[in-house]
Design a protein around this nucleic acid. Structure first.
Length: 479
RNA sequence: GGCGGUAUCGUCUAGGGGACUAGGACGGGGCCCUCUCAAGGCCCAAACACGGGUUCGAAUCCCGUUACCGCUACCA
């Protein structure tokens, strides 16, 4: 049997990290065990659904590389089938029309709440004689359709939680509504109807749907369909233990994309929230995640979204990624920041890739690389006041050291790391100062900042002319 | 309130009756490396919610309590 799983977001916002993780586990399941990963947009709530949101969800999934196997299903397009399923339920007496008004229901709820009791629909319309129902329908009286909950209990073997049982009398408020007054279906009916039509074999979703599951199982049975398996994934919380929301800062995957997080790192981090491959394995490529994935490793416990670990994870992925693969992302950032033109970078690939290799190990995000690249890709450098104050504290002495450094470098036989190092260390020794006393002022002269890759790498990266010119400028600045 | 779910370091987790003096990772602290910043290496602090069972033996199994989370719409 081949598995068919779906990710079914409602297009009422952006792609949330929780949704992304649900999509990831569905996708991982299919990649690991074989089958199809499908996408269904649950847009039956027309008031809240937007095309823009649908687009954002597609873009988020595409960015992460969680691609679906068949054409996207738009739930709203299946209205006729949803209604036909409801008609079938009505026909087989599995459902009934209810003429109670919203106002009446609200009053009953309020009364129950006042007595501190749980409200349950009292089934008054279920007892209406058939001719009375016909009369009211004929009169054009508005009605909803309710599903008749049978006696007994409903249970299933959840892939992550094990067996879960609900006494049928405790399912929600009793006979639940499946069709609105306006003839459109309610979530639970639409989901079941679509999952049957899409031949879904494993329903994997957030565990906030656990209490919907008995309702849906009853619908499957009433519709005469075979049951899928269910897997309820734990939620993602913010640092305060509450459900992740906008209060917690960035929750959209697009936010992290714009912060310079790599898709592979995001996926890796998300996978570890609620799943573990065991053996203390943490940093994984996507193929490794697929290989290692197992439903046995799925956790039952809600996880807290810790951005510090996400950034560390990103740094790990950054440092193992080839410069050539990183280059397009870095270029986009550099161009967007106005630091250099795309042409100026791509026209000197080897140099550019060396730069990226040097910066990527000390960066946690693509944005870090972009920021740190400024002294190398721009013609001018920006002097950091703090670095100047610290490293060029004594102006006369600094100027003197810098001009001596310039002479030593200019005299080097070859502009390569080894001979340059030799020249500078000899200079430091002849002047009786530690190498650091030479390198730090030099670093500021070359880059404007106090932190950079190794000083000889910087010299080589900048090249002879630019290095000497920047030293000249520094000496002039200090004169 | 009702129903359901969950419970190991601050955080993510390993663990599935003896291998536990409870392991790894992030974050924190320290040391090493070192021209700076990272990266890397080494070390330290830090947890089995509580109470009963079951058992020769419980982090692991059962029950209860507590806490937290979710659902409780003509939302999804």
């Amino acid at each position: 049997m081949t598995h068919r799983l779906r990710f079914a977001p409602s297009p009422t916002g952006y792609l949330h990290v929780g949704g992304a993780r649900t999509a990831l586990f569905n996708w991982l399941f299919v990649k690991k065990y074989g089958g199809q990963f499908l996408l269904r947009v649950e847009d039956t709530d027309k008031a809240r659904s937007t095309d823009e949101s649908t687009r954002a969800i597609f873009e988020g999934l595409e960015w992460l590389g969680l691609l679906w196997d068949e054409e996207v299903v738009h739930q709203g397009a299946n209205l006729a089938r949803h209604q036909a399923d409801v008609a079938r339920l009505l026909e087989h007496n599995k459902a009934f029309r209810c003429f109670c008004t919203q106002v009446e229901l609200d009053e009953q709820r309020a009364a129950a709440a006042a007595k501190n009791e749980a409200f349950r629909y009292d089934r008054r319309c279920e007892r209406l004689p058939a001719d009375e129902v016909q009369r009211r329908v004929g009169d054009g009286a508005p009605f909803v359709v309710r599903f008749r909950i049978p006696e007994g209990e409903t249970s299933w073997d959840d892939i992550v939680h094990g067996r879960i049982t609900f006494p049928n009398k405790d399912i929600g408020e009793g006979d639940f509504i499946i069709l609105r007054t306006d003839g459109t279906p309610i979530y639970n009916l639409a989901v079941v109807s679509d999952d049957i039509a899409m031949r879904i074999t494993v329903v994997m979703r957030g565990d906030d749907h656990i209490s919907n599951t008995p309702k849906q199982i009853l619908l499957y049975e009433a519709l005469g369909a075979s049951l899928p398996q269910f897997a309820h994934l734990p939620m993602i919380h913010g640092m305060d233990g509450k459900k992740l929301s906008k209060r917690h800062g960035a929750t959209a995957v697009a936010d992290y994309q714009h912060l310079g997080i790599l898709p592979s790192a995001m996926l890796n981090f998300l996978a570890l929230l609620g799943w573990s491959p065991g053996h203390d394995i943490e940093v994984m490529t996507v193929p490794e995640m697929i290989e290692l994935f197992s439903v046995d490793g799925l956790s039952k416990k809600a996880a807290v979204f810790d951005t510090a670990k996400l950034e560390w994870m990103n740094g790990q992925h950054l440092s193992t990624m080839a410069a050539a693969d990183l280059a397009p992302l870095v270029t986009r950032g550099i161009v967007a920041a106005g630091l250099a033109t795309e042409e100026s970078l791509t026209s000197r690939d080897a140099w550019y890739h060396t730069l990226i290799d040097l910066l990527k190990i000390r960066a946690r995000t693509v944005d870090d690389i972009v920021r740190q690249s400024a002294p190398y890709v721009r013609d001018e450098i920006a002097l950091d006041p703090d670095a100047v104050a610290k490293q060029w504290k004594d102006r006369d002495a600094s100027r003197d050291v810098l001009s001596a450094t310039r002479s030593a470098l200019a005299a080097a036989p070859l502009w390569e790391a080894a001979p340059l190092e030799e020249a500078l260390r000899a200079l430091a020794e002849s002047r009786g100062i530690g190498a650091g006393k030479l390198f730090q002022p030099l670093r500021v002269a070359l880059t404007g900042v106090a932190a950079s890759p190794g000083i000889f790498d910087v010299l080589v990266l900048l090249g002879r002319d630019r290095s000497l010119a920047r030293l000249d400028s520094a000496v002039m600045y200090l004169t």
